[in-house]
């Protein structure tokens, strides 16, 4: 069984790698959508629009953590246009800043993963995660209407 899981995981990683190689635009768009769904769950909870649920918080933060790790690698030089991308050329003009923002986002998400143990700590950490979203979208994502 363990071996089966290991093989499946290796395959999954392989497929991800192949996808990343061939169509980073489609993959990063899917990942960001996924991140958005997770962020929405967290956001609704932080606003009291959804009941607090520690399991959902952990799960959503994990999604954001993985998203931050993978998405940052999905902006190679040959993925500037096409595929309906909303990525702005500014990404590649300021690649160091762009990468640093992803790294900071990941760091803040990981701090929240370690620090959130109940509703009170969630309320404390949630804004530190959300404050990362706007900065990148302001500089690096075109408005899509």
């Amino acid at each position: 069984m363990k071996r089966l899981v290991a093989v499946a995981m290796a395959l999954a990683c392989g497929i991800t790698a192949v996808l990343a190689d061939t169509d980073p635009i489609a993959e990063r768009r899917a990942l960001m959508k996924h991140d958005g769904d997770a962020a929405k769950k967290l956001f609704d909870m932080s606003k009291g629009k959804a009941p607090f649920d520690l399991a959902v918080v952990k799960e959503s933060l994990k999604t954001l953590d993985e998203g931050a790790t993978k998405t940052a690698t999905l902006f190679p030089d040959n993925s500037k246009t096409g595929g309906g991308t909303a990525a702005l050329p500014a990404i590649w003009e300021n690649k160091a800043d762009f990468d640093a923002r992803f790294a900071k986002f990941k760091k803040d998400v990981e701090a929240a993963q370690a620090g959130v143990v109940d509703q009170a700590t969630f309320k404390k950490f949630a804004p530190t995660v959300f404050e990362n979203c706007g900065g990148c979208h302001e500089l690096y994502k075109a408005k899509s209407g």
Binding site: G36, A39, F43, F130, H137, E138, K143
Partner: peptide, 22 residues
Amino acid sequence: EALTSGFTPAGDVLGAGMTAVV
């Protein structure tokens, strides 16, 4: 909500020029 925090009903966050507007 979107004009206060930037968050849209779809879980996106307002970007580009709207970030400053928010």
